[in-house]
Amino acid sequence: MEDEKIVELFLARDESAIARTAEKYGAALRKTAERILRDAGAAEECENETYLEAWGLIPPHEPRSYLFAFLGRITRHLAIDECRKRESLKRQGLFCELTREMEECIPAGSSAEEEADAEALKSTVNSFLEKCSEEQRNVFLRRYWFFDTVPEICARYGFSKSKVKTMLFRMREGLRRHLEREGYII
């Protein structure tokens, strides 16, 4: 079913919206959560929670053109939050790798104690992505949005491992400089 029709079901408060969403995007959402949670049960909980949150958010939101981006944001946030709470997950696996890589982007002098303004940070990340080429942006998002491994990115685009690693390294450097320019330092 097309995204627009699924969104119409949500707007009409038709509960079949959830079943249609699950049919179309359930596997992808679960996979995203499972990549960093490494726990099929917890990933399924994130998936189900995503539907409930979407039910509460549509309306007022109407993500007609690309529902997956809207749902994926919710799933990612739930999974990251769960990892943050679960110390055992925080210290191992892909989540550990990803957060360590993100740490490289945080400007020196940025206060770890101070909670960043989430909306402002999203906008800054977007203004950074806007300056990148489509190829760079895709690789960056496959890694940090979809949580792909480097070999998976290589297979997707036919790039060598060193090319992907170098691209990601340069983009993390670029993001750090961008954050500095945007004032993310004390």
Binding site: D81, F146, A155, Y157, G158
Partner: peptide, 30 residues
């Protein structure tokens, strides 16, 4: 700012960027 806050913020990437990354070609490799 904490590492996971930045990772979470990437989630707010524009829809068109996510779409492009989602639809990006799967190459048969070189």
């Amino acid at each position: 700012m904490k590492d996971y806050e930045l990772l979470d913020a990437v989630g707010g990437a524009k829809e068109e960027y996510i779409k492009s990354a989602a639809e990006g070609k799967k190459s048969s490799g070189r």
